[in-house]
Nucleic acid binder design. Structure first.
Lengths: 279, 279
DNA sequence: CAAATGTTTTGATCCGCATCAAGGACAGGC
DNA sequence: GCCTGTCCTTGATGCGGATCAAAACATTTG
C-alpha cells in the first residue's frame, strides 16, 4: 500500500496528490474502488493481463457479497477449482461487444464501465460494475456490451461452459446466480425510469444516491461517494452530455447538497438528494 | 370465435368494426394478442377474475415458448400440479407496484403493460408482456411495478413459494427461468440505449421493429404489427409524450415507411425502419 | 521540465421535443 | 338517438438540455 498513511485520519495518495479521508472506513472504500496499486502504475500498464493464477478465495475480500457466499464447503471447492484470477490495469478493455464470450467472471476489486456503442458513435453506458458484481450473467455466447476498466481491476474468472455445467449440478449456486440476475434486472428497470422520465438534476441525484447505496452494500454507508468514472461516462449512463453533468454537479455543489472532492463527491444534504431521486 | 369469418382472406371483428387481415397467420397473431373474446365484453368485465381452474397444459398454445418447453414429462406434471389458470378482462390490474407478490405467472394469451409510477404522477412503462413471457422473474416478495391488462388475458399462475421450492429441486426448470431472466435483462439493456441515446423517430422505429421481432417468436414473421397499447403507453415506454408519438407515427406513415391500421401498423419499408432502429 | 493530451468547467446559442390548446373519431351508456 | 369519456391528431409556442466554443486544469509522455 504504497504511500498511504494510517491514523485517526487516513490519507490516501493517488497520482501524486494527497488528500484526507474522514476515517479508516473511507480509506477501505477508497482502496476497494480505486484498487490497491500494489504495483506502480507503470508496472500495471505493462502487465496487460496476468491470468492463470490459482484462486485464493480464503483471503477474498468480497466473499460475503458474491455468489460464493451461498455455497457449501464442497461446492466452494469445486468452484475454486475451475476459477482463475486475472488483473487488468486502468483503461484496459476486458472484452468487447459482439466478441465471443468464453468466460464469465466476478469482479473482486476495482470498477468497470459497461457500454454499448451505436454505429454512429453514440454511446450508452448500461452499468458500472463494482466489487462483488458478476459479469456475463446472461450466459450468452457473445458479449452484449464492452467492458472497460475504470481503475486497476481484479477478477475471478471461469470458463463459461465449465461454469454453466457446474451450476446445472449445484442448484444452490444456480440460485445465487439467478438472484444476481434478478437484482441486475431490477436495477436496469429502475434505470429505465431515470432515463425516460427524470430531469437532468434528478438524474444526477439518482445516480449519486444509487452509487452510495451500492457502496453501502460493500462497506458501511458513507457520505463519501468515490466516482472512478469521468463526467462523460456519467453522461452516457444518464442520457446527458458532459456539459450538463458538469453544470448539474456544480449547481448541486453551489446549493450545498454535495461537495465535489478529488475522485468523487461528498454528500451534504442526503434528504434533499433522496427527494430529488425518489422512486 | 364470435363473428369471425375464415377464407383465403380472414376477417376479424372487434368492437363492431370489421377489417381485413392478409392471411390466416395474421388472424392467429391477432387472436393471440387481442384475445379470443370467447365471452362477450360484458361477461368478461363481470368475471373480474376466475382463478382456481386446473391447468390444461395439453392444449396450451404457447407451450413451446414458455418455461414448460424445457421440461421432462415428470417435471411437467409436477409443475402442472401446482399451477392454476386465471383470466382477466381488458383494463384489469393484475397487481400493483409495492404490493405483496404471492404468485409468479406465465402469460398464455393477451398482452400486459408493466409500469412504474413516480410520486408526482410521471409514469415509465418498463415493458409489455406477450404470450409466453413470465411475470415475477425477480422472485421478489413485493411487486416492483404495476401490471395492467391491455386486452383480455389468460395467465397460468403458481404460488411464489411453491414455484421457488420446485425450481430448487428441478435444475432444468431453474435453468429455463434463468434463461428467461437473462433475456429480460438483455431487453432492458437494449431499452436503456433507446431511452438514453435515440431520437424520437428512432425510438418509434426501434419500438415497431422490436414488437415485430417479439411477435415473430410467437408466430412467424409478419409485417402486420398489432399494437394493443395506446399512444400514451408507447410514449411512457419510450420517454416521449403522446403528441410526439402521434406525430412520429404520422410522419413515418406519410413517408410510406408504415401504414397505420386499426389496432396496429403494417410495416412497408422494413429496411428503412431497421436502419433507424439499428443497434 | 515542457509539450501534448484528456478532463472539467463555463458561457452563448440553438433546436428537438414538451407543453398548451383545440378539434375529430369512436365506444359505451342512457 | 344523444351525451360522455377516451384516444388520436394537429397546430402554436416555449423551454431544457444539446451543441458550439473556449479556457482552466490535470495527467501523461518525451
Amino acid at each position: 500500500m504504497s504511500g498511504i498513511k494510517f491514523g485517526m485520519i487516513a490519507a490516501a495518495k493517488r497520482a501524486g496528490r494527497i488528500y484526507i479521508l474522514d476515517s479508516l472506513a473511507e480509506k477501505a472504500l477508497f482502496d476497494t474502488v480505486f484498487g490497491r496499486l500494489e504495483a506502480s502504475p507503470r508496472t500495471m500498464a505493462c502487465a496487460q493481463k496476468a491470468p492463470g493464477l490459482a484462486l485464493e478465495c480464503h483471503d477474498c475480500e468480497i466473499k460475503g457479497l458474491s455468489i460464493c457466499d451461498a455455497l457449501e464447503p464442497d461446492e466452494f471447492d469445486q468452484l475454486e477449482r475451475i476459477g482463475r484470477t486475472a488483473s487488468y490495469p486502468a483503461k484496459a478493455t476486458l472484452f468487447e461487444q459482439g466478441r465471443d464470450a468464453p468466460f464469465v467472471s466476478n469482479l473482486t476489486s476495482g470498477a468497470l464501465r459497461l457500454s454499448k456503442l451505436l454505429p454512429d458513435g453514440r454511446r450508452q453506458v448500461v452499468g458500472f460494475t463494482l466489487p462483488g458484481d458478476f459479469l456475463g450473467l446472461a450466459m450468452q455466447p457473445t458479449h452484449m456490451y464492452t467492458a472497460d476498466a475504470l481503475t486497476p481491476v481484479k477478477i475471478c474468472q471461469f470458463s463459461r461452459h465449465g461454469f454453466s455445467d457446474l451450476i446445472d449440478r449445484k442448484p444452490r449456486l444456480m440460485r445465487a446466480v439467478m438472484n444476481m440476475a434478478s437484482r441486475e434486472l431490477t436495477l436496469a428497470q429502475d434505470q429505465m425510469v431515470v432515463l425516460g422520465r427524470r430531469t437532468a438534476e434528478e438524474k444526477i441525484a439518482s445516480f449519486l444516491i444509487g452509487m452510495r447505496n451500492r457502496y453501502a452494500r460493500i462497506h458501511g454507508s458513507s457520505v463519501h461517494v468515490p466516482l472512478p468514472m469521468t463526467r462523460l461516462d456519467i453522461g452516457d449512463f444518464l442520457g446527458l452530455t458532459v456539459e450538463t453533468v458538469s453544470r448539474m454537479m456544480t449547481r448541486l455543489a453551489r446549493e450545498k447538497a454535495i461537495v465535489i472532492v478529488p475522485d468523487g463527491v461528498r454528500l451534504l444534504d442526503v434528504p434533499r438528494l433522496e427527494l430529488l431521486a425518489e422512486m
